[in-house]
C-alpha cells in the first residue's frame, strides 16, 4: 500500500514535469497558426488556422537563407572537427614524439579557458583578416575542438595496437590508418563528437552576432534573435513566435529520430567537459 502511494506520487511528479516541459512548446506552435489578434490569448486552439505569421516571416527576413547558412556552417565545422580532431587525437594516443605531453597539457588548458578572454581579440582578428560578414569567420575558429581531440584520444587508446601494426606492415600511411582502421572502429565516438559539435555550432548566437552584420550572412538563431529584438517584426507577435518555431523545427525533427544518440552524446560531453 505504501509503495502504491509512493508510485502515484512519482507518476504525478513525472506527468507534472512533462506538462511543464511540453505545454509551452505546444502553445507556441499553436499560437503561430492563430490570426494575429488571438496570438496572446491563453486558449490553445486557434479559431481558424492561418499561415499568415509564417508568410510574414518569409516576407520580412531571409530565413531560408539563414537556414542554409546555419546548415552550411554547422556541417563544415562538424566535418572539419571530425577530421582534424581525430588526426590530432590519433597522434596523441598512438605516436610517440617529443613534446607530446606538452601538447596534451596545452589542450587541457584550452578546454578550461573561458571564451570571454579571447572574444575581443578574436573579433579584432576577424576584422583584420577582412572576415567580418563571411563564412570564414563562422567556420575557421571552430575547425578543431579540444573536446573532440580528447574524446578521440580516449577512444583510439582502446583499439588494439596489433591492428595498427598490421596496417603499417601493409604499407598504410598514418592518414589511411586513421580513416580506414580507426574510424570504422569508433563509430559511437564519431557520432558523439559529431552531434555535440553540430549542436553547439548550430545554437551559438553570441559569436555570429559579433562577426556577422549582413543579413544575408546571418545564421538562423541570430536572424531569429534579431528579428525578435529589432524592429523588423513590426511588433507582430505571431511572426516572432513563427520565426522561433521555424528555428526549433529542424532540431526537434533530428531529435525525434536520433533521440538516444542525442541524449548519450550530450551526457558524454557533460562528463568530459
Amino acid at each position: 500500500m505504501r509503495m502504491g502511494i509512493l508510485k502515484i506520487t512519482f507518476y504525478t511528479a513525472l506527468i507534472a514535469g512533462a506538462v511543464t516541459f511540453i505545454y509551452p512548446f505546444l502553445w507556441m506552435i499553436l499560437a503561430t497558426l492563430k490570426p494575429e489578434p488571438e496570438v496572446a490569448s491563453l486558449s490553445l486552439l486557434p479559431s481558424k488556422v492561418t499561415l499568415q505569421s509564417y508568410l510574414e516571416v518569409f516576407r520580412r527576413i531571409p530565413i531560408g537563407r539563414a537556414f542554409f547558412n546555419s546548415l552550411f556552417v554547422s556541417t563544415s565545422v562538424t566535418g572539419s572537427v571530425l577530421v582534424f580532431s581525430s588526426i590530432t587525437g590519433y597522434a596523441l594516443s598512438r605516436l610517440r614524439f617529443k613534446g607530446r605531453e606538452l601538447i596534451f597539457a596545452v589542450i587541457l588548458f584550452t578546454m578550461m579557458l573561458p571564451f570571454q578572454i579571447t572574444l575581443i581579440p578574436m573579433y579584432v582578428l576577424m576584422v583584420k583578416f577582412g572576415w567580418v560578414n563571411s563564412y570564414q569567420a563562422l567556420i575557421v575558429p571552430g575547425m578543431i575542438s579540444a573536446f573532440g581531440i580528447l574524446v578521440f584520444r580516449q577512444a583510439f587508446r582502446s583499439i588494439p595496437q596489433d591492428l595498427v601494426d598490421s596496417a603499417r606492415i601493409d604499407g598504410c600511411s598514418e592518414l589511411r590508418i586513421i580513416f580506414q582502421v580507426m574510424w570504422p572502429l569508433s563509430k559511437p565516438t564519431l557520432v558523439t563528437v559529431g552531434i555535440i559539435t553540430f549542436m553547439n555550432t548550430w545554437n551559438d548566437v553570441l559569436w555570429p552576432i559579433i562577426v556577422i552584420r549582413k543579413q544575408s550572412m546571418m545564421t538562423m538563431p541570430q536572424a531569429v534573435a534579431l528579428f525578435a529584438v529589432g524592429g523588423q517584426a513590426d511588433a507582430q507577435m505571431g511572426s516572432i513566435l513563427a520565426a522561433a518555431t521555424l528555428l526549433a523545427i529542424p532540431v526537434v525533427v533530428a531529435y525525434v529520430f536520433f533521440q538516444r544518440h542525442f541524449i548519450e552524446s550530450m551526457a558524454t560531453s557533460g562528463l568530459k567537459g
Binding site: 567580418v132 560578414n133 556577422i212 552584420r213 549582413k214
Partner: peptide, 16 residues
Amino acid sequence: PAGQSSEEVILAAIVG
C-alpha cells in the same frame, strides 16, 4: 551590409 546597427558595420568597414 547591416543587420542591426549600421554604425557597427561602418566601423568595421573603416577598420578594414
